[in-house]
Design a protein around this nucleic acid. Structure first.
Length: 416
RNA sequence: CGGGGAGUGGCGCAGUCUGGUAGCGCGCGCGGUUUGGGACCGUGAGGUCGCAGGUUCGAAUCCUGUCUCCCCGACCA
């Protein structure tokens, strides 16, 4: 992508109506635009990041047998009446709407009620199990107060997966696989070292749920972390019994703040019972299917990464999810410089390396500041100097020093 | 929902207390000089001050109502 073509621009001014670092930076760099509280547009560069994150999540879900679908946002009232979740007393963050004929509908905040009856159409035997179905979809939650930029929105992108198992053993096996997949996801997103599995409330479904909490002072949750064991306990379930059950020495627990970047929990037969979702076992006896639920807020993960991996110059994206791998800063517009920069851009693009090519008629400082603010992992400078020296200047986003390399070495470094 | 703060060109702000029909910076257009860390000079365009009502000869400024945004708290199946 040539920056001269990109319709968004970075700004020297920080938005006044945001306090959260992630929102400030993402807006300043032109990645997102706020429509209203808790509702953001993803602009070209922001959408690339969002998609990159979603695709990593997809790969890991596929790797454990997840099958992707896309369910509607509009939700049938009767399904929620079946489970008792239509009531505003029970679910206080519903967005509800109506058809012109008056039929009430909901805007999905989760999809158990949509998927469970759907699965009933296909699954009837133990031979069909286990299965796991997921989607990457927009969720609507009428939060009393949205806040912190992408961290807590009213409309946000979420990956939600649901597993269906014949019995507890089969469920546990998949649950553990999902747990491992989640760990891999956060590692690939560049926040693995500070993300910990956390024992949290299982609600009305099970004893515990497992949250994945990324340590940050910007987080909303208070946790007690055992670095030694690499696990944490959410304050909401913290007590002596839990500590004992997990064989943790209470003295080593550290009180920290975390951002919930994922949550998995066992649903047991909470949804399969009311919908009559059962499978025949080997003896022909119908048994309720055991379900599990596995969520990751894709947009929240993006906000978390923006928040945590940034520095005083701007965003710092891990290579896996950056909107582009390379930023070509073309200094000046002498024919030799333009030619060389154009050729490098073509060459890298052909090698399927994503590039932001700063071909604008702007001063060097502006281009450097832009590259830093946007958080592009690698910067290549082409100028009269480098053309003359027959080198390319290479610099990582977080390194202080630039190096001069030959075209051959440059291509090698970039994997082209 | 309770408490606090704030709405003035695309963005960031001043002006409001002490009414007299808007000003600065960034950005943008044009001309020129520049070109290795968000350049400089000149020139120009762009707002009627969130919205509605009221007071007044006159309202960005005072009064009432209302909408929106941010923060803290409560809430987060």
């Amino acid at each position: 992508m040539r920056l001269s073509q990109l319709f968004t621009k970075t700004s020297k001014n920080v938005p006044a109506d945001e306090t959260a670092k992630n929102a400030k930076l993402l807006i300043q760099a032109g990645f997102i635009h706020k429509e209203m509280a808790g509702v953001y547009t993803f602009l070209p560069l922001g959408l690339r990041v969002l998609n990159n994150i979603a695709n990593i999540v997809r790969e890991e879900m596929d790797a454990i047998g997840g099958q992707e679908v896309l369910m509607p946002a509009l939700q049938l009232k009767e399904h929620y009446v079946t489970t008792g979740r239509w009531s505003d007393e029970v679910v206080d963050n519903w967005f509800k709407t109506k058809l012109i004929n008056g039929t009430e509908l909901g805007l999905g905040f989760s999809h158990e009620e949509d998927l469970t009856p759907l699965i009933k159409n296909f699954i009837t035997s133990y031979k069909d199990l286990p299965i796991a179905v997921y989607q990457v979809q927009t969720k609507f939650r009428n939060e009393l107060r949205s806040k912190s930029g992408l961290m807590r929105g009213r409309e946000f992108l979420m990956k939600d997966m649901y597993s269906f198992s014949l019995n507890q053993a089969q469920h546990d096996e998949f649950y553990e696989k999902a747990q491992a997949a989640y760990t891999r996801i956060y590692a690939r997103l560049g926040i693995g070292d500070r993300t910990f599995m956390t024992f949290a409330s299982g609600g009305s479904f099970s004893k515990y749920s497992h949250e994945f909490q990324t340590l940050s002072d910007a987080g909303e949750d208070t946790l007690y972390l055992s670095r030694k064991q690499g696990i944490a306990i959410n304050k909401e379930v913290m007590n002596d019994d839990v500590v004992a059950e997990l064989s943790i020495d209470r003295a080593e627990l550290e009180e920290v703040k975390g951002i919930e970047v994922g949550n998995i929990f066992s649903l047991n037969t909470k949804f399969s019972e009311p919908f009559g979702l059962a499978a025949n076992d080997e003896t022909g006896v119908a048994t309720p299917i055991i379900m599990g639920c596995y969520g990751i807020g894709i947009s929240r993960a993006m906000g978390t990464i923006a928040e945590l991996l940034s520095d005083d110059k701007g965003l710092v994206w891990p290579e896996n999810i950056a909107p582009a791998k390379v930023y070509i800063a073309r200094l000046g517009d002498s024919p030799a410089v333009v030619k060389q920069a154009d050729e490098l851009y073509e060459r890298l693009t052909q090698s399927r390396i994503t590039v932001l090519y700063d071909d604008r008629n702007a001063r060097p400082g502006q281009k450097f500041a832009n590259a830093d603010l946007m958080g592009i992992p690698t910067r290549v400078v082409i100028s009269d100097k480098t053309v003359e020296a027959q080198t390319y200047e290479l610099k990582g986003r977080s390194s202080q020093e630039a190096t001069q390399v030959s075209l051959q070495d440059l291509l090698k470094t970039l994997g082209a």
